[in-house]
Design a binder for these strands. Structure first.
Lengths: 224, 224
DNA sequence: ACAAAACTTCAGCTTTCCTTCAGATTTTCG
DNA sequence: CGAAAATCTGAAGGAAAGCTGAAGTTTTGT
């Protein structure tokens, strides 16, 4: 999952990044309103975490702008104060959840998952494509009652495919979703082949159809 | 899709080209006002990306000239400043969209697609010509509920025809659109015949009429 | 600190697509 | 009608993209 964290407290930011990366997320960061605004306007994230108290403007403003332009982006407000006012205005402005500092990182993670579940998968924990079940809560994939042992990258890849059924995804887009923006500067995206191959092999071995179709010179399509 | 990028920052330009080529687009470039003006006046593009801050003149001027001469060319303004003035004047002068540096390349791509969708296809993702449906998002062509397996060139060719129904397109113009402006220096454009032939054959085999009419000594017309 | 798992790189192989070539067919125009 | 130019066609060669197994590197977990 691709996240943006708008937070100026360096220590907290580092903690969050370390933790969330370990959980398998791609993390981008912004340290103030301006950076946050730029990133938010120019890129798609699954969830944006916004600290209300950030330099150069109000986090609530950023939230408002984000929600008006990209209403289906998940948003979580983070605030130092436990003030009811902030909470109410945050949720009124369209935040999907609200977290008060200090918080436990697993709690944050749980909320991120909950928000995307509500936003992307119609409140459903399980993404199902015919015989393939993706349990997003447990990060587990099941085909015909057998769990398929996927590596993190393979899992992300499958979930990304399943969330974009029947659309052509360029190798570029796929790489960006799984590795982050830095792949733009790479001249070689061949490593994608490996994960496609391994994912295909495991799914087929588990008894699923090979829904991953290659689209010559562009990328792949998860065709159902 | 055929794009022109007017941008003097070499690094940014290279990044954009790499990315957009990977997405299957033909990219032409101009590094200043003069080059941009020449290219724009002498060739046809689906979308022109213009950096406002370019040598030898104002990007907004170029935009104005382009829009007055070829109003249906898609245009996206790129600006380093996050100034409202630029944005307003850019959009007032007829730009179809506006992007602030720094931007993420997928965002750029999304906007290019959005602009052409609005400009060329009446805001529709599906281009339909009688029994032929071109699903631009899925990169899929369907005739009578059967998908037609087209190669990249064939697909581009068909989409180009379908976007220019009933207009005579010269072989030269077609070649420029599919291969880029470098075909100007070629004395032999015979390879176009092949793709026309293959496209015709596949469409007819799928049960469609042969809308591609040859216009002797000129080129072709997609007649509906 | 070690072993296991995951990721990346590399080199060779297969497939798909594009271009070239040579010859046949059609169109135009004197 | 006949010749020249343009177009069409099938087949072959070459180029590019995709696939794969194995080796090397990094990361993870104990």
């Amino acid at each position: 999952m691709k996240l943006l964290i708008v937070e100026d407290n360096r220590d907290l930011l580092d903690n969050m990044i370390t933790f969330l990366k370990r959980e398998g997320h791609i993390c981008e960061t912004a340290k103030d309103y301006r950076q946050g605004f730029d990133k938010v306007m120019t890129h798609a994230y699954d969830v944006v975490l916004i600290d209300i108290m950030i330099p150069h403007g109000d986090g609530l403003n950023l939230l408002k702008e984000l929600k008006s332009l990209k209403p289906d982006t998940g948003t979580i407000i983070i605030s130092a104060k436990n003030s009811l006012d902030d909470k109410v205005s945050g949720l009124e402005l369209g935040a999907d959840d609200y977290l008060t500092k200090p918080f436990q990182l697993p709690e944050l993670h749980a909320r991120i998952k909950a928000v995307t579940r509500r936003n992307r998968h119609n409140g459903n924990d399980i993404v199902q494509v015919h015989e393939i079940e993706i349990h997003t809560g447990k990060r587990e994939v099941i085909v015909d009652d057998n769990t398929v042992g996927l590596t993190p990258k393979e899992y992300d890849l499958l979930l990304y495919f399943a969330s974009n059924k029947n659309f052509v995804l360029s190798k570029q887009t796929i790489a960006e979703h799984l590795w982050g923006d830095y792949v733009d500067h790479l001249e070689n995206l061949d490593f994608v082949y490996q994960h496609i191959k391994n994912l295909r092999k495991k799914l087929v071995a588990a008894g699923a159809n090979d829904y991953i179709k290659s689209v010559y010179s562009i990328g792949y399509k998860f065709k159902v």
